[in-house]
């Protein structure tokens, strides 16, 4: 840490100082709906199993199984809600950043000069709330690129415009 401090004669722009914007509040609804779409098949399966398949020796533990099940899913839901305000994006003159996560914090920055292309996606549920997500691709491993979900559609288009302009500069 000390050995390279001398190299820097001027102040670096700091990512810590960037003002991050929250994503649209309505996206929480999308998260809820998506959550229940995944949750319902599981709970249905469990109820069916409990009624028809489970033998009596297992049924003794029925309450326990259901409690564990609900705690597990409740925890996931809690995590979604609690981490929601932490989904934030930031735009600077030369790069775009996104951070998220409560227990597993993550922050990604893509410099404009490395952007390969930008994509806007509207999921069927997001469309109900007039939301869109914006994906920024670089030449790196595609799974690790930057995706901002839950932006208002006009906002997403605006950002895309901005990025395209910057990339072509």
């Amino acid at each position: 840490m000390k050995s390279f401090k001398n190299d820097v004669v001027f102040k670096l722009p700091k990512i810590e100082d960037v003002e991050f914007n929250e994503i649209n509040k309505h996206y929480l609804n999308v998260i809820f709906i998506n959550f229940f779409i995944t949750f319902i098949p599981f709970i249905t399966a469990l109820i069916l199993l409990n009624t028809y398949v489970f033998s009596d020796s297992i049924k003794i533990y029925s309450t326990l199984i259901f409690i564990t099940f609900f705690i597990f899913w409740g925890f996931i839901l809690f995590y979604y809600i609690a981490s929601f305000p932490l989904r934030k994006y930031g735009l600077r003159e030369r790069d775009i950043s996104y951070k998220s996560g409560l227990f597993f914090k993550k922050m990604t920055t893509v410099p404009f000069t490395r952007i390969q292309h930008v994509e806007i996606d509207e999921g069927p549920i997001s469309r109900l709330f007039n939301l869109a997500s914006i994906s920024v691709y670089t030449a790196g491993d595609s799974s690790d690129d930057l995706v901002i979900k839950g932006l208002q559609k006009h906002k997403a288009l605006q950002i895309k415009e901005y990025l395209s302009k910057k990339v072509n500069e």
Partner: peptide
């Protein structure tokens, strides 16, 4: 470097450490 990422788990946060991931066009 293509993009850069900082990750931090709950346990890492308590000790004030984080991982840095540098993504290049040939792997991270």
């Amino acid at each position: 470097v293509q993009n850069i990422k900082l990750t931090q788990t709950f346990f890492q946060k308590r000790k004030d450490v984080a991982n840095l991931v540098l993504q290049t066009a040939s792997g991270k």
